[in-house]
Design a binder for these strands. Sequence first.
DNA 1: GTCTATAGGCAGATAGAC
DNA 2: GTCTATCTGCCTATAGAC
Lengths: 192, 192
Amino acid sequence: MSGITAERVLDTAQRLIQTRGFNGFSYRDIAGEIGIKSASVHYYFPSKADLGVALVSRYRKNFAAELDGILDRHAEASKRLKAFVELFRQTLKSERLCLCGMLGAERDGLPEPVNDQVRAFFQLCEGWLCEVLKNGRKAGELAFRGNPRNVADQFLSLLEGAMVLARSLNDPERFDKAASTYLGVLKPSTQE
Amino acid sequence: MSGITAERVLDTAQRLIQTRGFNGFSYRDIAGEIGIKSASVHYYFPSKADLGVALVSRYRKNFAAELDGILDRHAEASKRLKAFVELFRQTLKSERLCLCGMLGAERDGLPEPVNDQVRAFFQLCEGWLCEVLKNGRKAGELAFRGNPRNVADQFLSLLEGAMVLARSLNDPERFDKAASTYLGVLKPSTQE
DNA sequence: GTCTATAGGCAGATAGAC
DNA sequence: GTCTATCTGCCTATAGAC
């Protein structure tokens, strides 16, 4: 388990899903890219469902670690949110969608265990955002109406949607504008 | 051309794409659902790329007609925006994504002519939203900072993303909350 | 662990009868 | 227009040699 080849398989599969979708690539595509045969991919991940679950599970754990890191590095709420946006921005920069944004869209065409993992990812993001928003408002660093949960939902939806549109229209700046405008609205003073 | 069978093929293909994605269904799936053979589907749409282009083109034209209808029925900007949201809400209600939200995500796995159609759809939406926002602010019916184009981008991104998340998390209300909160922010007074 | 070989099925697509 | 029949190739997946 967790040898170097398995990691390369996951890396390749992830990139393929983030660009083409879960049903837009094959075991042969993965194998071809890393120079092995498709039977070897089955050795690590017997079925495509197994591969999908392992992939999103890893993605979610890596993401959780990034979120922990943000809390360590930044004490101020607005900087935490900016760093959160930056995670998505980096993905878009490499011409990919959020793995779970893609899989969330394709829901009905996926093995159910994969969908469970995708839901867990969204819940992770929203729980984290919710805490940052709540604490930020309490500390007077953020200002918004309504409950933090709704704002977290809205913010995450905006980021996922903006990635899709920016990529489709070949204009990555659209993502930056949409995200930074939204962050501006959460600031306590009336300055932009 | 444009016989009843062709329309049924398009209707079925559209629903399948909106739920599973472009690479998540086959000609046999379409044929099976409407009780014909897959060869008959090829009679109307020789290749899957042809089908995709015809589908998004029809979708875009129908959507444009809806948008015209909204302008006719509603004079006030906030009502126009609400009616715009309602178009997406109805799609989500039938357990589907926006056709172009799905196809936009799958960009790299699609025939290029399909991507062109998807871009045209997003541009249609944004152009329309931009006009409504601009005129609404001029008339004092809406209040927002920044240029209307950016707000239109942001709003459309939010709606597309909220559909994905609401569907993935099996909670359609999330879409309603995200959309209505956003509309509230565009109101001129400080009331929610 | 990686390979060759192969199974069994489904994909998109076409030819030609009716 | 719709069918049957078929092609070619790819798909996921497995068995078994090395």
